[in-house]
Write a protein that binds this DNA or RNA. Sequence first.
DNA 1: CTTTTCTCCTGTATGC
DNA 2: TGCATACAGGAGAAAA
Length: 287
Amino acid sequence: MPELPEVETVRRGLAEHVVGRRIADVEIRGARVARRHLPGPDDLVARTRHTSVVDARRRGKYLWLVVADDADQRQALLLHLGMSGQLLVQPPDAPDERHLHARWRFADDGPELRFVDQRTFGGMALADLDDAGIPESIRHIAPDPFEGAYDQAAVVRRLKRRASGIKRGLLDQTVVSGIGNIYADEALWRAGIHAERRSDLLTKPALDRLLTHAREVMTDALGQGGTSFDALYVNVNGASGYFDRSLAAYGQSGMPCRRCGTPIRREHFMNRSSYSCPRCQPAPRGR
DNA sequence: CTTTTCTCCTGTATGC
DNA sequence: TGCATACAGGAGAAAA
């Protein structure tokens, strides 16, 4: 479940291993992985081969390679890992992965880049960059808490106007991006707020503290290389992150709360699981 | 307009 | 043992 810390870990790997290299060839297998590139996979291949990778950037859970052609016309190769996507830097002679969907070979004949995705919720598309350097197709995605463009007071004002559960707001990528189910639960646990508390009934200071916890828990996770529960999330070298050992709420049902010892509970919410401490995060009345 | 629900996918775990 | 079902959930389309 790659969220901001996991995607940032991957972005750093791309910055180290791919930026500065010239793409010699691109191979896309099947129609699904490039389904959001409306002109089709052949168009994507034709427009990215023989370009140079000049940057690797990220907003929320989206990341993109900035590629430049010989006239220095720049475009974004926009990538999303979805649930199970991996970007792997592999020796050209490494055997194909079971769910290999795309491969980039480079003019230097060095390691190649591969997009592997078991569930294919992830994918790629080409996009134009706007004046701020953001791909046009993700203009609806709000800045994430690590960006200069992030305005926490503005996010607080938006959450203060929403008449729905606070966790929905945390997960809404048009409000604040990068937070998924894991870090939403961790931020809510740190803040002592139940997922279904109404966003507009929380105080602005409480919303501000919650967002600060969200940024801090993602900073902590980034320091551990992200969270891995299984082999589905790995960095570009195939290595797992270690933040799963530090999770206080997510996936911890039955384990004692690290603050008060009460067993962590699991509830169903928005067609997924929510984990919280019954004592530190009391459910709102009238539910 | 805002908010909610549905759908895409496949490997793993669990139940009968 | 074998088959059916639940579950993991990001994001966008569709519905309310």
